[in-house]
């Protein structure tokens, strides 16, 4: 990056370290922290949306929809999430390629040939002549879908519980005022639900943060990938030879995650205090009494 780094062999001590830490691959490593944050930023709203969908499906009066909701919300209880992270991307990939192969390829050729999954070049996703970033982006998208499905199911559990916790009298009052079901949902149920949902959702956010290194298992070039790549022993054929430093890279990642969870906890605590204002809960009562004298 800097001009004086052009000959790393001649450098020593702090200058060597500075040049080492600003090498091209290290910049990619730093950028991959952005990948993690991006995953969090995209997954959290989508998962919340899936959660709302799942929660309303469970509460639906329409039976098939309710059954779907129950299966969706129960599936994450008994099965490890890692299994979904391994299963969903490859299943999605094959499903999409199969659909495309029905359109773009000769439909008489079977897709499964023995132990191979073969589609013609046109149906490949992404196309084999696509740029590198398209391949990375496609992998990332599959990861986002896998995370959203799993955390959507968790969120549906939390939101369904929170909706059931809203005092029945508040909803009855709304009914007495002649509000329709949709109006009750939008104006009473959802606004009043947040204070009950917050403990569960904040837990979920913490679990989501701690699940992000699993991106590595999905083949995305995330922080774990770069830590293993950069930390491994580098012989003197490399510009910056060093012994096995993976431990230090992983300790760096550990500090990153500890900082993330610590900051999140601070934010959640403040949010909880705000949401408890005027609520008919213990925390709300404590706030009221604290403010009175």
């Amino acid at each position: 990056m800097f001009a004086h780094c052009s000959d790393p062999g001649a450098l020593e001590g702090l200058a060597w370290l500075m040049c080492y830490l600003t090498s091209g691959k290290h910049l990619l490593f730093y950028a991959s922290f952005g990948t993690v944050l991006l995953l969090l930023a995209i997954t959290a709203p989508i998962a919340l949306l899936f959660g709302f969908g799942g929660a309303f499906a469970v509460r639906s009066r329409f039976r098939p929809l309710r059954w779907f909701g129950l299966v969706y919300t129960s599936m994450v209880r008994g099965v490890p999430d890692i299994l979904f992270f391994l299963f969903v991307p490859i299943a999605m990939d094959q499903a999409l390629e199969w659909l495309r192969s029905r359109v773009y390829c000769d439909p008489t050729v079977p897709v499964r040939q023995g132990n191979e999954f073969v589609v013609c070049a046109l149906a490949k996703l992404p196309r084999s002549d696509a740029a590198e970033w398209v391949h990375q982006g496609y992998g990332f998208m599959l990861a986002v879908i896998a995370f959203s499905i799993v955390f959507g199911a968790f969120a549906a559990n939390v939101l369904n519980g929170a909706m059931s916790a809203v005092p029945r009298a508040q909803l009855e009052t709304a009914e007495a005022y002649g509000l329709t079901e949709r109006q009750i949902n939008r104006r009473i149920l959802i606004p009043q639900m947040w204070t009950y949902a917050l403990p569960g959702l904040s837990n979920l956010w913490m679990i989501l943060i701690k699940a992000t290194p699993l991106l590595f298992l999905l083949g995305v070039e995330d922080i774990v990938y770069w830590a293993r790549d950069l930390g491994g022993t580098k012989t003197s054929t490399y510009a910056y030879p060093h012994p096995d430093w993976r431990l230090y890279y992983f300790l760096g990642i550990l500090v990153f995650y500890l900082a993330m969870t610590w900051v999140s906890q601070r934010v959640i605590d403040r949010l909880a205090a705000r949401l408890s204002h005027g609520q008919a809960t213990m925390a709300g009562e404590a706030l009221r009494q604290g403010a009175a004298p």
Partner: peptide, 19 residues
């Protein structure tokens, strides 16, 4: 408790193995 609850198990495995 803070260190082990605040960091991913996946990273803890990696660190332990490397150590």
């Amino acid at each position: 408790i803070f260190v082990f609850r605040g960091s991913p198990l996946f990273i803890q495995f990696f660190i332990a193995y490397q150590a």
